[in-house]
Computed example of a mutant assay.
Amino acid sequence: MEERPLYLTSTLLYGFAGLVVFFGVWFVLPTTGLVPVQFLPSPITVAERVATLTTNRFAGATLPAHIAYSFTRFISGFALAALIGIPLGLLMGWFRIVDEIAGPIFDGLRFIAPIAWVPFAALWFGTGIGGPIMIIFAGAFPPCVINAYRGARQVDPRLIEAAEMLGTSDMRMMTNILLPASVPSIVAGLRVAAGLGWQSLVGAELIVASTGVGFMMVQAQANVATSTVMSGMVAIGIVGLLIDIILRWGEAAIRRRRGLNA
């Protein structure tokens, strides 16, 4: 019982030490002139710029507004990927014919990097919301399908045999047995999908958007405003971390509820 608190304490100390080293090196490089301030502002300069951007507009909006635009696109693409990918993965895992029909197509498409869809998104949607959503979908869709498929294939055969003996229909089998048993794997897939979707969004906004954090960074780069570019990077990292923490918490809660190792 005493080992876990000690382990957590050492983990926190090591993490804190890593942050101190990281920010220390970052502070020293521009301060000593080893790297020009124009290309690497100090952490203090970036923090001040973040504070300024929370109230002052840049590229048509404040930083919180750009984050809101980005997050709206992310939620739309991520939700679409989950709503289509999870049922498809369960169907592929349960029905062999669906797996044989959809499997080869999915295996071919999932190796196409989300950023490769940018030209099509630009042609089809221009700078509207549809382009980024399409690219987020391309990034988040494969993990949703793969983990739902894996969860369906790993269901306890005894549960399936018992349901079959009772004459359970395929639809009830999926909703009452397959889906509940696959939830831990599905949630783990959603966490991966969220990370890939958020990364894909930023790449999309660099090219096919007129608002959002990525668009703000492009405008800042064109004006050689490095502190603004890095402010956008900080915002991207913090929001991505918060998304992962929420999904990680949900995954751990579900695993604890089911008596699995968190």
Rank of each mutant, 00 (worst) to 15 (best):
Glu205Met: 09
Asp107Pro: 14
Ile133Ser: 04
Ala138Ile: 05
Asn147Tyr: 03
Gly128Trp: 03
Asp156Pro: 09
Glu164Pro: 00
Ala113His: 13
Thr175Leu: 15
Leu206Met: 13
Trp198Pro: 05
Ser182Gly: 04
Trp198Glu: 02
Ala204Lys: 03
Asn147Arg: 12
Thr127Glu: 10
Trp124Leu: 13
Ile133Trp: 06
Leu109Ser: 12
Ser210Leu: 14
Asn176Leu: 15
Ser182Phe: 08
Val155Trp: 07
Ala209Pro: 02
Glu164Ile: 12
Ser185Glu: 11
Met134Arg: 01
Ala162Cys: 14
Arg153Ile: 11
Arg158Lys: 14
Leu201Arg: 02
Leu109Asp: 13
Val183Pro: 00
Ser210Phe: 10
Met174Asn: 09
Gly195Glu: 10
Gly130Met: 10
Gly212Trp: 00
Leu109His: 14
Ala188Arg: 07
Ala204Gly: 07
Arg172His: 15
Gly130Asp: 06
Leu201Val: 06
Leu123Gln: 13
Val145Glu: 04
Met134Phe: 08
Leu190Met: 08
Ile135Asn: 00
Ile133Glu: 05
Gly131Tyr: 06
Leu201Gly: 01
Leu190His: 04
Leu179Tyr: 11
Ala204Thr: 05
Val155Pro: 02
Ile186Phe: 07
Thr211His: 08
Val118Gly: 05
Thr168Ala: 14
Ile105Val: 15
Leu206Asp: 00
Ile177Glu: 09
Ala194Ile: 06
Gln219Leu: 14
Ala113Trp: 14
Phe215Trp: 08
Val213Thr: 08
Gly131Pro: 02
Arg172Pro: 04
Leu206Gln: 09
Gly128His: 04
Trp117His: 04
Gly203Leu: 05
Leu201Phe: 10
Phe141Met: 09
Arg158Ser: 14
Ala162Leu: 15
Ser200Thr: 10
Arg110Thr: 07
Ala148Thr: 11
Glu161Thr: 12
Asn147Lys: 09
Met134Ser: 07
Ile207Cys: 08
Ile112Pro: 12
Val187Lys: 06
Ile207Pro: 00
Asn147Gln: 13
Ile112Cys: 11
Thr127Trp: 10
Pro184Cys: 11
Met217Gln: 07
Ala204Pro: 00
Gly108Asn: 08
Val118Gln: 03
Ala181Leu: 02
Ile146His: 09
Ile136Ala: 05
Ile186Val: 14
Ile136Ser: 04
Phe215Ser: 00
Gln199Ser: 13
Phe141Arg: 05
Ala140Leu: 09
Leu206Glu: 05
